[in-house]
Write a protein that binds this DNA or RNA. Sequence first.
DNA 1: TTGCCAACATACCAATTAGTATGTTATGTC
DNA 2: GACATAACATACTAATTGGTATGTTGGCAA
Lengths: 194, 194
Amino acid sequence: MSKAADTRMMILQKSFELIYRKGYQATSIDEIIATTQVTKGAFYYHFKTKDDMGLSLINEVLYPGMYNVMIKPLEEGKDPVKAIYKVMENLLNDFVFFNPDYGCPAINLIEEMSPMNATFKKALSRLVKQWQTAIVAALNKGQADNLFASTFVPEEVAMVVISGYGGVRNIGKALGKSSYKTYLKGLKTYLTNL
Amino acid sequence: MSKAADTRMMILQKSFELIYRKGYQATSIDEIIATTQVTKGAFYYHFKTKDDMGLSLINEVLYPGMYNVMIKPLEEGKDPVKAIYKVMENLLNDFVFFNPDYGCPAINLIEEMSPMNATFKKALSRLVKQWQTAIVAALNKGQADNLFASTFVPEEVAMVVISGYGGVRNIGKALGKSSYKTYLKGLKTYLTNL
DNA sequence: TTGCCAACATACCAATTAGTATGTTATGTC
DNA sequence: GACATAACATACTAATTGGTATGTTGGCAA
């Protein structure tokens, strides 16, 4: 990677950390250039505007990261119930950027930016749709193997699962990590009873 | 109500609308006084700071409103499954301040303000806990009547329900109202299978 | 070695922010 | 009807915001 590309990626990553903890609008360019030790001229050489940086961040940092953790394991896993639960457990336990106090980077951005900026909304809804599709596909596979009861509708189950994740990430901000544990138990019962 | 109290409440209500659509930090005092037609002097006569207004808003507007819709019906209802579903249906369909684009006022504030301000966090977590307690109580009542299976743990079910609500409110911002419908169907199946 | 341009650096700017200082006016009490 | 105070109104400020205009420098091709 060239030095310029390094600088650009470094700005994106540090911005990601800041925005994760403070929110997009509350994170100023001045703060970004202060923590990156990059001057304003350099910042605006790499990015046309703040929003240009934000979009790049979604597509080049957030999206690939989410894909590896949320989608890839579902495509590879055999038992969909186990795969879905495992993904959720990983999301709620293992990651540096998944502090209960600060929630989920993707959920945060959806919350804050979807109503404010149509371009952000589009980029973020693409992410949600991909996860949705991956979960539905996994469930369909399980249904073909006659793993589930007849009342079962994959799209509805997927929506309950996805919503549960987004919600517990939100509740966790108010009530702390114990919410995660309780939710995971409830999810397990839900999934195994399908 | 005295005229001064009227002014105060009017400021709180209009601020609530603005903050609901734009977020707390993105809503400026200047914008509030512009839409309320109240001068800056009047605003700062009624509220010490912006945060003072925000807290008052949570306790005097948000909290009573939520209580009536989210908690009261649960205390009064007979069948907990029906009561919980009905509350959720109301939350996702009926209200002016519940536009899919803008999400849920309470969830929005938890998302934005919990990590930023401990006082906000406390006021908001009180709200979540109350809902949680009301749902658990309703479920316990149903369990006493032998309505549910033995694997059933009220706290875990409550967490799945609450998280589902918060999450679908988030997803709805990205994917629109159709998410609500799908979620409600999934929730109904979940609840009736308990 | 020279010329050129990518990759930065510095110094600024107008607009907006929360908040304050210092007014004026309405209203209830005696 | 005087007077005190509650309830506002006006004009300001320092700090911060995203963005720009105008520099400088390092490395590579000719």
